[in-house]
């Protein structure tokens, strides 16, 4: 049963991978690919990474560069044209990207190939596997994941658009407003709604809602708005440590747990519950619950 779910996930991602290979010059937007995979837009990129071992963007970039390498090797096309075909506006940008993958410049690569010193793909694949392992399987022991029913929650929130590192300002505004009104108490829950993956969405477009639970009669004011967070079944794991490392726990949750869970995700964003105050807590002592919305079993 579990095995077949993992296979199903892999099949659906493979379907997308084949499409990417065939359409390296086409529309490879996140939305279009998510639709093709029948995964929710909120979760597609993370499932992709869990299955493939690299992010969607890295994957597409690598395929384009590999195609470029093949063109360098087998054609007399100018490097500028090859760069352009790979989606790079300038020779310099292409050279930089090429170097990070192949460890040498495109012109060196072409000359070396012509003197028949093949650059082995092994080095690269070896490096990649290590990276994958670093990303997905760090941390001690198997991951603890619980499935929980979370009641729907009425929250006051401030929308943040921009890099995750700057969400502090939204929290500041929200906490100050609620605090001075006497709305912060022991029952207050601090929740982040994460609509985008910083590995996929450009930092300046990342959307995030800083939320605190409030009573039904809370009156919104200024940029403090209200919304209801959907209840339902969630897979929950606890992340210990700095917020900067939340991404690693997400990767493990998708890579280690979801693929073998036999579960599918609901088309709703992931939630983060912040269980202690980042103010006055050392980053390594921070505690965050990450919640993936699950589709009901039937």
């Amino acid at each position: 049963m579990k095995k077949s779910t993992e296979q199903l996930y892999r099949q659906r991602i493979l379907h997308v991978q084949v499409h990417i290979q065939k359409n390296l010059d086409g529309n490879l937007s996140l939305e279009a690919l998510a639709r093709r995979s029948y995964f929710s837009i909120y979760h597609f990129h993370r499932i992709f990474k869990a299955v493939v071992g690299e992010s969607l963007q890295e994957h597409i970039r690598r395929l384009r560069l590999e195609r470029a390498a093949s063109h360098l090797k087998h054609t007399d096309e100018s490097i500028t044209n090859i760069a352009f075909d790979a989606g790079y506006q300038t020779h310099e940008a292409f050279t930089r990207a090429f170097k990070t993958v192949f460890g040498c410049s495109p012109s060196y690569f072409r000359n070396r190939i012509s003197t028949s010193q093949e650059i082995t793909a092994q080095d690269r694949s070896g490096k990649q596997t290590r990276q994958e392992n670093d990303n997905l399987f760090t941390g001690d022991g198997p991951m603890k994941v619980e499935t929980k029913n979370i009641e729907s929650m009425h929250v006051a929130f401030v929308r943040h658009v921009g890099p995750y590192n700057d969400v502090g300002e939204a929290w500041d505004r929200l906490c100050t407003h609620l605090g001075k009104e006497g709305c912060l108490g022991s029952g207050s829950q601090f929740i982040g709604i994460c609509y985008d993956d910083p590995e996929v969405t450009p930092p300046e477009k990342v959307r995030y809602d800083a939320c605190i639970t409030v009573d039904e009669d809370f009156i919104p004011a200024g940029d403090i708005a209200i919304q209801t967070i959907a209840g339902g079944e969630y897979a929950v794991t606890t992340h210990f440590g700095p917020y900067e490392k939340l991404g690693q726990t997400y990767s493990r949750l998708f890579g280690e747990w979801l693929l073998t869970s036999g579960r599918e995700l609901r088309s709703q964003p992931c939630l983060e519950f912040y269980l202690n105050d980042p103010d006055g807590t050392e980053p390594e002592d921070l505690i965050t619950d990450i919640c993936l919305p699950l589709r009901s079993k039937n």
């Binding site: 906490c175 100050t176 407003h177 609620l178 605090g179 001075k180 006497g182 912060l184 108490g185």
Partner: peptide, 9 residues
């Protein structure tokens, strides 16, 4: 928290 946030505000 109420005292702190009121001062902050």
């Amino acid at each position: 928290y109420t005292i702190k946030m009121t001062r902050k505000f």
